[in-house]
Design a binder for these strands. Sequence first.
DNA 1: AAGGGTGTTGAAAG
DNA 2: GCTTTCAACACCCT
Length: 276
Amino acid sequence: MPELPEVETIRATLSEHLVGRTILKVDVFYDKIVHGMTPAEFCARLAGQTVRSMGRYGKYLFFQFDAITLVSHLRMEGKYFLKPETEPREKHEHVIFTLVDHDTLRYHDTRKFGTMEIVPRGEERQAAGLRAMGPEPFDPGFDGKYLSGRAGKSRRAVKSWLLDQTVVSGLGNIYVNEVLFLSGLHPETRVCDLKKKDFARLAEASRAVLQKAVDLGGTTIRTYYSSLGVTGRFQNELNVHDRKGLPCPVCGTPVEKIQVGGRGSYYCPRCQRKKG
DNA sequence: AAGGGTGTTGAAAG
DNA sequence: GCTTTCAACACCCT
């Protein structure tokens, strides 16, 4: 469940349940999840550690201990569940953290794309993938001027450009589709064809969409059940994403779907005309 | 019923 | 360099 609002919802929920609790042992059932060290060392480093806080940057989730941080990326389908130790391990539970009270935190990832890495606390930005991350839409300084500066003379499609986490952190396919709708921009518009006003709209729409989604607990598209009760409500607010053929909420024109950079892109052909 | 698509990202190829 | 494509993997729809 990976865009910024979903990760933030997970961070907040796990924070309520995990802060102050201590890990007894960790078992890894799919080695490639663990990066930067062997699974054996990964488990050894975490045993005995007490969760002090939960953090997040972009789509990366942080479990913060006294001197180390576990950086977790959920990629396409990673989920966390809290359940009693007595429950049998499910097929796609690849990492199980057993707490000293014999509850377990389980990392479930059908497609096995997710990653985990341990870094010194305070150096989260040194984790692989986090080094080059751009600002979040909520960061001070994220505005039309910043985006305009980053754009340079790029001829990339604005849709692909906004998915680039070095430009802006936290947007994924769902929210980029929504941001472009609110900005009135066709997903294939080239970045070099955007005007000052377009960049300002993109910055504002990015903030607005992510903030509203965070407030509503994110978006739940696929069937999702959780012992933590993590079910988003933003799916009721989607204007275009996954709404091919359904009427645009503004003008009623059927929403169209095309591929841009290999990703499904939904837009209103009337409200989002291509320029340039 | 095989093939395309899926809330992602980084390596490889152009 | 910069940009696009594809692979990592499993499952669900046509």
